[in-house]
């Protein structure tokens, strides 16, 4: 069972700054594709570095495949070179002085593979990442997507049982991103490798993940399948972070409309779950935007901004008074 267990680790870079991760725990299942989603600086890269051993936590334990790699109580700390994890860096981190072939062969040489073995494995990988014709090129002459494929190939070539991907698509343009994210999922499915994928892009997360973990300020706020997270965000942060959501503060009219009374302060409503009707809550149209297939209306409801999507605006113009109803909502903790 290639299960990763992280128990209560705390990480800080130097003694003067605060903890980047504090009492952090996480469980990653065998062959799972877990996406860690969070804005920059939330500690997600630090998490990957702690798992790989590039950063040593101050306390806690990291267990993988029933092997303990790190345990502060036993002063146990396996160095990164002994953990056999694949790591793919955001800026590719290819050795600039080695060509594509040698970059791919590098991990095998380090692990003292036989020469013939190296050759066949590298060729196989070159074909898999579709880079065979570039094998003698230097990294600096490759495009971003090509470099990323080489970086992925290098992280996979020595059959690691855990693959750590740090924003591998962040520096690529939209079309390339789509292609490559498909390949990444394909790699995962084919190699059956447990994968932790770090990103700040929710689209990527939804496209790839078995489970998504939302991270904020060194903590996991919510973890679950993409559908769980989308449908039931736990708090305002998650609600705002995942897709368009209207965050509304409860008031008397809302309680009345929804027929509930909660001690919670906020609710989240997706724009598509708000419909205009003859009855409901009164609001004023403040802005109308054309977004291709639909229009986005900005409504002012008791000084709260509400966005809704409609197909046609024939009947509406700015400053009209309209009424809306809420079809589906989530009550938020904070």
């Amino acid at each position: 069972m290639n299960k990763l267990l992280i128990n209560n680790i705390s990480v800080k870079y130097d003694n003067n700054s605060g903890y980047i991760l504090e009492d952090f725990s996480l469980e990653v299942h065998d062959q799972e594709f877990l996406v860690i989603l969070g804005s920059s600086g939330c500690g997600k890269s630090t998490l990957l570095k702690s798992i790989s051993g590039l950063v040593s936590p101050a306390k806690g334990e990291i267990i993988y495949n029933n092997n303990c790699y790190f345990d502060s109580s036993k002063s146990l700390n396996t160095p990164p070179e002994k953990r056999n994890m694949g790591y793919c860096f955001q800026n590719y981190a290819l050795c600039p002085h080695m060509n594509v072939y040698r970059n791919l062969a590098f991990p095998l040489k380090v692990k003292k593979y036989r020469k013939a073995g190296i050759k066949s494995k590298v060729c196989e990988m070159l074909n898999f990442i579709d880079m065979a014709r570039y094998k003698s090129k230097l990294p600096n002459t490759l495009s971003g997507g090509e470099k990323q494929r080489v970086a992925l190939g290098r992280a996979l070539i020595y059959d690691p049982t855990l693959l750590l991907l740090d924003e591998p698509l962040a520096n690529l343009d939209a079309n390339l991103k789509r292609d490559l994210s498909k390949s990444i999922r394909k790699i995962h499915d084919e190699f059956k490798v447990t994968t932790i994928y770090v990103t700040h892009d929710q689209l990527e997360a939804f496209e790839l993940a078995d489970r998504i973990a939302i991270m904020q300020e060194g903590k996991i706020i919510q973890i679950g399948t993409p559908k769980d997270i989308y449908d039931s965000p736990k708090n305002i942060f998650v609600a705002k972070f995942i897709g368009r959501n209207n965050i509304l503060k409860f008031d008397a009219s809302l309680y009345k409309l929804l027929g509930i009374h909660s001690n919670k302060k906020y609710l989240a409503v997706r724009p598509k779950d708000i419909i205009l009707s003859d009855m409901g809550l009164e609001s004023k149209i403040t802005d109308i935007k054309y977004l291709g297939n639909y229009y986005e209306l900005s409504l002012d409801y008791n000084n709260q901004m509400v966005y809704i999507f409609i197909d046609s605006i024939d009947d509406y113009k700015i400053n009209d008074i309209v009424y809306f109803n809420i079809q589906k909502y989530v009550i938020l903790n904070d």
């Binding site: 570095k49 790989s52 051993g53 590039l54 160095p79 990164p80 070179e81 002994k82 953990r83 056999n84 994890m85 694949g86 790591y87 860096f89 955001q90 800026n91 981190a93 290819l94 050795c95 600039p96 590098f106 991990p107 380090v110 692990k111 970086a151 290098r154 992280a155 020595y158 750590l164």
Partner: peptide, 12 residues
């Protein structure tokens, strides 16, 4: 990260 990547693939 180039050095980090070399370490994670196992170089001493």
């Amino acid at each position: 990260d180039v050095i980090n990547s070399a370490r994670t693939v196992g170089s001493s």
